[in-house]
């Protein structure tokens, strides 16, 4: 089945099984910044942005992306360099496997309008990190929210 959507700002028409997972389809396009972690929508490593909202691509059937505006870390890295800079400057990462998901989630933070430190924590609670203890990630998101 042909599925059309915008991916990282460009129109896409893909001939895929609509029951495929968005995660697999995206990674199959060599966009491997989107990572598979828990596979059940809990850890956030596979976060993509769909119409401005954060979505778990591991539990998202690609058919449901029809006509949507989809962004992955690769596209957001070009579109939102200031967000990448916040994570780089604050070193909001160690092993890096959760990092793209953290950054995509942060990119979609406007969808819920979180701005206070407590709101940011609640919003980012869906993105797990096992390395950092979260302090540098929080600083990065807080800085990004503050300059926006």
């Amino acid at each position: 089945m042909k599925i059309t959507f915008n991916l990282n700002g460009k129109g896409m028409e893909l001939d895929v099984d609509p029951m495929s997972l968005a995660l697999d389809v995206i990674r199959g396009l060599s966009l491997t910044g989107t990572k598979e972690g828990c596979g059940v929508g809990v850890c956030g490593a596979c976060t993509i942005m769909v119409n401005g909202s954060p979505v778990s691509s591991c539990i998202c059937l690609v058919g449901t992306l029809s006509d949507k505006d989809v962004w992955t870390i690769e596209g957001l890295a070009e579109k939102m360099p200031e967000l990448i800079d916040s994570f780089v400057e604050k070193e909001g990462m160690q092993c890096g496997i959760c990092t793209p998901g953290q950054i995509v989630a942060a990119a979609a933070i406007d969808s819920v309008g979180a701005s206070s430190p407590e709101d940011i924590k609640k919003y980012m609670a869906g993105n797990l990190c096992r390395c950092t203890g979260y302090q540098t990630i929080l600083s990065a998101v807080e800085e990004y929210v503050a300059i926006n």
Binding site: G41, S53, P54, A105, S111, Y123, M124, G126
Partner: peptide, 9 residues
């Protein structure tokens, strides 16, 4: 409910 992604989806 769940997390921000679940709520969005």
């Amino acid at each position: 409910i769940g997390n921000a992604r679940v709520r969005a989806m």
